[in-house]
Design a protein around this nucleic acid. Sequence first.
DNA 1: ACCCAGGTGGCCC
DNA 2: GGGCCACATGGG
Length: 229
Amino acid sequence: MSMMGLVELRGRLVTEYDVEGWWPSETPFEVMVGAILTQQTTWETVTRVLDVLRSEGLLRVRELVHCDRERLERLIRPSGFYRQKAKRLLCLVEHVVTEHDGDVISMLDQDMHVLRAELLSLPGIGPETADSIILFAAGKPKFVAAAYVSRVLSRTGVLPEVGYYQVQGFVERTIWPDAASYQELYALLVKHARTVCRREPRCSVCALADVCMQALTSERTRCCLRPPR
DNA sequence: ACCCAGGTGGCCC
DNA sequence: GGGCCACATGGG
């Protein structure tokens, strides 16, 4: 009975899912806006809201920074937490304008660690949102250790249940730093987590994993990716 | 009528 | 450092 490693899990997921165009945005700035809007919200909803913002011409720093708060709140309302998110978006563009002369690219072009600290200093941008922006907008190799990611890794026996930075550190030590690799792995894990619970009785990826089967038979009969009670 | 969603910040111990 | 809670709408 061998422990499944991260590389093997990735190999199985690759044969199951197509994650082409996982983060469908036209520009780095759209990725940043999407990263904030998608907090605790489905991407389907975020896509609709992004379409609205785009049609209003607001997916550019110079335009969004002049949008008044009430209007922005109204436009993004379907994505939930709309008052917080409107504030966060306006703080972000305000920052880009004052600190980077409105140039998103020069902001994202900085050293990865400098950029990360800068993003984390903004309200409403925590570890996951910062890392999503670094990985998908800046294209730099920082792995996003989202809740789904650690859930899949623990349920498949790759890792025990640990915190954000431990999961991130493990992946970054295991997989050679490369933005495309990290993007693909992240997308595979999240897509798997979102898909697998609807498969009956069990998905092939998890059911084929020895360690996962152990966990399933000893603890629960339902899908291995449901959060524990 | 539940439960969940590609989190974060503030407060508490 | 971890454990709660509010934040809010929309879909299953």
